[in-house]
């Protein structure tokens, strides 16, 4: 014990080496910390160096909480033209009937073309790596439908307006990773939101330099427009997207 104290004192001269000390003298407690039982902290080595057993009123019992990705309103702090996303999942392995219980992750960029969870690099200089806006997860209902409340996505150089979708079965096994394209005619939501009317909502890029679906490296092979959604609505009332995705459920 005395030698251990001396050892500790020697070590403590360099105060920043503090964590090393205990690794040397409290090996038992490593397991007690990881196993996390209340009792094991006191059953370590039995020497005076062990931590005391916690002795206080128990806090609230933990409750099972879904991932924070599980949300229908994915806007968080993002503003823009109101946008409702309705995605229906159908199962090609069951006569294209609705697939209920499928887990659907979506993500898209904000009105300025920026993604959350990205940034600080050449593709996106603004750093949004520590935020989760415009990403969400829902589980399909008996009609195979999920609905998200969002803002109309902007665009960025090199890509047409799009929404990313990752579909899993109810067990979490990946079924399909895909993207949803938007109609882009002169009277389309994309043209309207990015036109002069959209500036009041913060969409300032216009359509100059926009990459249309035919030139988009993801959608250009979609000659039947199977990936293009139906989008209805107006700037003031907001837009509603409807799209069906077929998976091997």
């Amino acid at each position: 014990m005395e030698s251990r104290k001396k050892f500790l004192k020697n070590f403590l001269i360099g105060a920043t080496s503090v964590p090393v000390i205990i690794a040397a003298c409290k090996k038992d407690d490593i397991t007690s910390t990881t196993s996390g039982t209340d009792t094991s902290t006191s059953t370590g080595s039995g020497s005076g160096s062990c931590s005391v057993t916690p002795s206080e009123t128990a806090g609230p019992f933990p409750t099972i909480t879904p991932s924070s990705l599980v949300r229908s309103d994915i806007r968080l702090d993002r503003s823009g033209v109101a946008f409702t996303i309705n995605i229906t999942i159908k199962n090609t392995n069951n006569n294209c009937s609705a697939l209920s219980g499928a887990i659907v992750d979506i993500w898209h960029c904000d009105k300025d073309g920026y993604y959350s969870e990205y940034g600080g690099s050449g593709m996106q200089s603004i750093d949004y790596t520590s935020v989760h806006f415009l990403r969400g997860r829902q589980t399909t209902d008996s009609n195979g439908l999920v609905t998200f409340t969002s803002i109309f996505p902007g665009w960025y150089s090199g890509r047409a307006t799009h929404i990313h979708v990752h579909v899993y079965n109810s067990a979490g096994t990946s079924l399909l990773i895909t993207q949803i394209a938007f109609p882009e005619a002169s009277d389309s939501a994309v043209a309207t939101v990015n036109g002069s009317g959209g500036t009041a909502y913060g969409y300032t890029k216009g359509m100059t330099g926009y990459t249309y679906n035919a030139s988009d490296n993801v959608f250009s092979d979609d000659t039947t427009s199977a990936e293009v959604a139906t989008v209805t609505g107006s700037l003031s009332a907001g837009y509603v997207l409807a799209h069906t995705i077929y998976v091997n459920g």
Partner: peptide, 9 residues
Amino acid sequence: VQLQSFFSI
């Protein structure tokens, strides 16, 4: 507070 494994300044 006791110095302990996985607890550091």
